[in-house]
């Protein structure tokens, strides 16, 4: 008998006499905040900042200048660009050399390690937890892109992308895509359970809320 068959047989024998458990209940809240979209976006900004992300807000017209300033202020001389990022976004970023991550010839991990910053969009953002979700779609890039450079600037392109809670977020996401949930910059609590920002992921996370 294979281990697969043996394990399945052991499971069936173990629960053979067990009663059917009570049905799953889903009477928890679908959100813990009022249905006021402006307040939900404010809460997102507040919770991102609480976990040490730097939050900026601007209009769509102001976005290129703001992104250029963030790269300059960080001292970035190079920036990784995911395929599908709106070209207007980095139109003003003249000080940083742009490295497009071409799917035909993707940047290697070592190349990414030598690049100062990465600018991406995101799929959605979750206000209650201060979370950005990337699904490797256009303008977001593959997972390594937002991991290896030390400075990640993530644009939440429109207020429509902001949801209040996990029960609102989960149905919007496609499980077949690789997903990265980001709630603040890399951190650890491994030394005396004291939170320290900045270990292996980008040590600086900047979030731009547009709209």
């Amino acid at each position: 008998m294979s281990s697969r068959d043996a394990i399945l047989a052991r499971i069936r024998a173990a629960v053979a006499d067990a009663p059917e458990p009570p049905p799953v209940t889903r009477d928890y809240r679908t959100a813990h905040v009022d249905d006021d979209h402006a307040a939900v976006v404010d809460l997102l900004a507040e919770n991102l900042a609480d976990y040490r992300a730097r939050v900026h807000r601007c209009t769509e017209a102001e976005l290129p200048a703001l992104l250029a300033r963030l790269l300059t202020d960080h001292g970035s001389r190079s920036v990784a660009v995911p395929p599908g990022l709106p070209t207007a976004w980095l139109a003003a970023a003249e000080g940083a050399e742009q490295h497009l991550d071409d799917p035909e010839q993707p940047l290697t991990a070592r190349q990414l390690d030598a690049i100062d910053s990465v600018v991406t969009g995101c799929r959605i953002a979750i206000a209650e937890t201060g979370t950005l979700v990337l699904d490797a779609g256009p303008g977001q890039g593959r997972r390594a892109l937002t991991l290896v450079p030390d400075h990640h600037v993530c644009v939440v392109g429109s207020a429509d992308q902001v949801v209040a809670s996990l029960p609102q977020a989960v149905p919007l996401l496609d499980a077949t895509r690789p997903l990265t949930w980001i709630s603040g910059p890399s951190a650890t609590s491994d030394i005396e359970l004291d939170r320290v920002e900045g270990v292996h992921g980008p040590r600086t996370l900047e979030v731009v809320l547009v709209g």
Binding site: Y51, P106, R142, A175, R177, P178, L179, T180, W181, S183
Partner: peptide
């Protein structure tokens, strides 16, 4: 924490990612 800093979700393998 309200949410841990990073969560990764993957389904099998993805062309050109991971």
């Amino acid at each position: 924490e309200r949410m841990n800093p990073y969560t990764t979700m993957w389904t099998g393998t993805s062309e050109g990612d991971g």
